[in-house]
């Protein structure tokens, strides 16, 4: 491999790293819902795409809405969809029955997908890519403006989110419920309230992630939901269940590697290597990137 190939490889890693912030946000959402509810929400990525569509719908009256508004609308829709998902798919199903919730979120995934297909008649919609004309050149490399924007936005969301989780009363309550639901209830924390707020907050993160992937790819399609679900779950596991820093790092790694493998081996084999990476983690480091010293069972 000569120098030029090396530069191309580094370029694709950089692009992937920037796009990886989307995966990181989705990974945080999956991890947090699992942390609080100890249940899987398989409809999360579909809800994120749905929120991105919702933002288009909300802003369809305006021609050229500014960037900030588009993303805020997506976050708003994400929050609403998150609350709906909680009430439809979680609230009325007994806690002791994780299989039933798993299935109901699968039903919601199909439902959200079909609502999107139904309202858009299956046609992919163009999503406003922001700063797509800006290209930053660093010597041999160039960084695409839209991807940089997505990355910066993703990082900002993560920082805000971590502040929310570690510096506010809501964050403390959320973490308390995830560690000891009964004890926190005895301390006067309303579990229902925390659960709903968790779904709203993760839904907002998901909405932004959906809008980000829409902006990075340049269009929205219901076909995005399935790959994003798979990638989000992989990120969650590689990062370690319940670990937010792990999800962030894993999201960036998966994004970078995916782009690198696409460059090296082509688009058809790309995901195969990501799956192998996941298996390597499951076998050698089942606790994720930031696992504590392994305990024996």
């Amino acid at each position: 491999m000569d120098l030029l190939d090396l530069i191309d490889a580094a370029q694709s890693v950089a692009d992937g790293l920037l796009f990886g912030s989307t995966y990181a946000l989705l990974g945080i959402g999956f991890t947090l819902i699992f942390g609080v509810m100890h249940k899987i929400n398989l409809s999360y990525a579909a809800a994120s795409i749905g929120a991105a569509y919702g933002s288009l719908l909300l802003l369809s009256g305006f021609t050229a809405a500014p960037a900030v508004i588009v993303f805020m609308a997506a976050a708003l829709c994400g929050g609403v969809i998150g609350a709906l998902v909680y009430f439809i798919g979680f609230k009325f199903i007994p806690v002791a029955n994780p299989l039933a919730t798993l299935m109901s979120t699968v039903g919601l995934l199909l439902l959200i997908d079909e609502i999107i297909v139904h309202t858009t008649e299956g046609v992919p919609l163009a999503y406003p890519a922001l700063y797509s004309d800006v290209v930053v050149r660093l010597g041999q490399f160039m960084l695409r403006g839209d991807l940089m924007f997505v990355f910066v936005l993703g990082c900002a969301c993560m920082v805000l989110f971590l502040l929310l989780l570690y510096r506010t009363r809501l964050g403390i309550a959320t973490r308390a419920v995830s560690q000891q639901p009964i004890a926190s209830q005895l301390c006067g924390i309303s579990i229902l309230q925390v659960n709903v707020l968790t779904f709203v907050v993760t839904g907002m993160l998901g909405g932004i992630a959906g809008a980000m992937s829409g902006a990075a790819i340049g269009m929205l399609s219901p076909l995005l939901a399935q790959p994003l679900t798979v990638k989000g779950l992989i990120v969650t596991v590689i990062g370690g269940l319940g670990s937010i820093p792990g999800a962030i790092i894993a999201g960036l790694i998966v994004g970078a590697l995916e782009s690198l493998f696409q460059f090296l081996r082509g688009v058809t084999e790309r995901d195969l290597y990501i799956m192998m990476l996941l298996f390597a983690f499951l076998v050698f480091r089942p606790g994720g990137i930031f696992a504590k010293a392994p305990g024996r069972d």
Binding site: I88, G89, F92, I93, A100, T101, M103, S104, V106, G107, L108, L109, L110, L111, I112, D113, E114, I115, V117, H118
Partner: peptide
């Protein structure tokens, strides 16, 4: 197709 997902959710509830 719309009803499909909704009915699964309903059945599970």
């Amino acid at each position: 197709n719309l009803l499909f997902g909704a009915l699964i959710v309903l059945a599970m509830n």
